[in-house]
């Protein structure tokens, strides 16, 4: 029994660290122009990375974070979502214990994001990068909880309950 718990915990740990590394690589890729904004060392990758991320974001300059004139490859909202996912994936490595999470948190995250998108698209409020980023961050944090839970439950626990 003790041996099985140890095996599950080490599998959970390995899975979570794998997710964290993949997400870290993804975030590093879109943030390359900002991370290396004071040098041209990664300019050779710019067209390739920009095209690569174009499939998942409109990449409008005025909606993207920039540093010294270099814009990230994705907009502020997408940056928020990915950073939210990265933050939670990092935290999940140190917190392996599982407990029930209510799905209403996912709905709340999605509704906040949707309201911000609608209000900004209809010009009820001006476009603010920080608001796009924060609503994306909240949604990213909540959505990864459920994604990770579903993957772990299937591959490690064979349960259908939402646990994390």
């Amino acid at each position: 029994m003790q041996n099985n718990i140890y095996k599950i915990n080490s599998s959970v740990f390995l899975l979570r660290i794998s997710f964290f590394l993949i997400i870290l690589l993804w975030v590093f890729g879109f943030a390359t122009p900002i991370i290396f904004s004071n040098s041209n060392s990664t300019i050779i990758l710019y067209p390739v990375l920009h095209k690569f991320y174009s499939g998942v974001c409109h990449q409008l300059d005025y909606k993207s974070f920039s540093l010294l004139g270099s814009h990230a490859h994705v907009c502020a909202r997408c940056s928020g979502i990915y950073l939210g996912v990265l933050i939670f994936s990092a935290l999940s490595i140190f917190y392996v214990k599982q407990k029930h999470i209510d799905i209403k948190f996912l709905y709340i995250g999605a509704i906040i994001l949707l309201i911000d998108v609608l209000f900004q698209s209809m010009h009820i409020v001006p476009y603010l990068k920080i608001s796009a980023f924060l609503t994306g961050l909240i949604f990213g944090l909540t959505v990864f909880v459920f994604f990770l839970s579903a993957v772990e439950n299937h591959f490690l626990f064979n349960k259908t309950k939402i646990l994390i």
Binding site: G55, V56, C57, R77, C78, I81
Partner: peptide
């Protein structure tokens, strides 16, 4: 939503 010009500006990583 992710390709056609003008409409594309409303798209983001949540479309797919």
């Amino acid at each position: 939503l992710t390709t056609v010009p003008y409409i594309k500006s409303f798209s983001c990583c949540l479309i797919i």
